[in-house]
């Protein structure tokens, strides 16, 4: 079954990624944008996997969904850490 909120979540993450690629030159100077983008992409993959898990290989895809979310949170952590490190060096 496809839930409405899953579709909206997917679309929103897709919009974020598209927005990034449209504005990647402007955002190139954003601190640690690479890690942040990877995190969002993995969230996008996760949302895709959330949608398709209701059709086949539910367990495997569900596991993959959660793994991608884990990767995404790790990347967020790395991004947050890199921001802290840059701020420290700026001081």
């Amino acid at each position: 079954m496809v839930q409405e909120n899953e579709i909206i979540t997917f679309l929103l993450f897709a919009l974020v990624v598209i927005f990034y690629f449209i504005n990647r030159q402007k955002l190139s100077g954003f601190p640690g944008i690479k890690y942040f983008l990877i995190s969002i992409v993995f969230l996008l993959i996760s949302s895709i996997l959330t949608i398709i898990e209701g059709f086949f290989f539910e367990e495997i895809i569900n596991t993959a969904e959660h793994i991608t979310r884990l990767v995404s949170t790790v990347m967020l952590f790395v991004w947050a850490y890199s921001l802290r490190a840059k701020k420290g060096s700026a001081k």
Partner: peptide, 24 residues
């Protein structure tokens, strides 16, 4: 996995909260 996600999210949030002022 979700628990690890929670831990990383909390840690990331802690880092972000401590960063009070950045360019954007």
């Amino acid at each position: 996995i979700d628990f690890l996600c929670l831990i990383f999210t909390v840690m990331s949030g802690i880092f972000m909260v401590r960063i009070k002022k950045v360019k954007l």
